[in-house]
Amino acid sequence: MKDYKGKIKSVKKISIDAYELLIQSDLENAISGQFISILCPNTTLRRPFSIAGFDKETKTLKILIKLKGDGTNYLKTLKENDEINFLAPLGNGFKIENKKSLLIGAGIGIAPMLFLKDELKNKNIENYLISGFKAQEEMIEGSDKTVIGGSVLDNLDEIIKEKNIEILYSCGPHIVLKLVSQLAKKHNIEAQVAMEKTMACSIGVCRGCIIKINKQGKIENASVCKDGPVFYGDEVIWE
C-alpha cells in the first residue's frame, strides 16, 4: 500500500450518471475487490472506488463512478493528463476459486464484477455476470444478462440451478448482499460479497468502517477497508 500519482488517460460518460476513468500510474498489482482511495481537493476525506479493471502492461486502472455529491462531481470534471493522488491497492479482494461462478452486480456494484470477470476469463473459469439497474438510462454494459427495473435477485434461483453454479460473488447495496448471502446458504454454496461503509483513513487504523462478523462462533469487529471489503457472506452479521 502506497500513495500514487495517477495520470488521467480518459474520462468517459457511460450512463446518465456514471463515468469511466482510466488512470495510469506506477501501481504494479491489483486484484478484483480491492479499491483505491482518491484525494479530492474539495472534500475533507478521500473517496473510495473499486478497481473495475487493470491492465498490467500499460499500468492502467479503470474505475467507474456514479455521481453522488462533491467528490464524484469533482472527479467527472477531470481531463486527460490531469493528475490525481490515490492510495492503493487497498483491502482484500475476491478469493477466486476454480468453480462455476455467478457474479451479481447491483447498480454501480457492477464495477468490481467487471474486473472479476476479466480475471475469471484469464483463468478459464466458467462464469456468468448478471447485473441490475433501476432504469434503462442507468445501465452500464459488460454483463451476460442485464435486468432493468425489477430485482436482479428474482432470476438467481433459476440460474444457479440451470448452470450448476458453485459460487456467488456480489457487489451492490447492503440489502442485495444480504439476500445474495441468504441465497447462497439456501443452495449450500459459498458467497463472497464486497461491502461498503463510509470510511476515514481507508487503511484500517481509525476503526470508522466497522461491521460485525462471526469468526468461529465469536462475534468480532472487522474493518471494511482493511479486513474487507470482500467478506464471506456467511461470516457477516447482517443488520
Binding site: 472534500t43 475533507t44 476525506l45 461503509k197 463510509t198 470510511m199 476515514a200 481509525c206 476503526r207 470508522g208 468502517c209 466497522i210 469487529n221
Partner: peptide, 22 residues
C-alpha cells in the same frame, strides 16, 4: 468493541466520529 452503527460523518472542513473507543 466501540459503537454500533455509522461511525463517520463528513462535514465541510472536517468530520464527526463516534468510534466509541474501540
Amino acid at each position: 468493541l466501540g459503537n454500533d452503527g455509522d461511525r463517520i460523518f463528513e462535514v465541510k472542513g472536517g468530520m464527526i466520529n463516534r468510534i466509541g473507543l474501540e
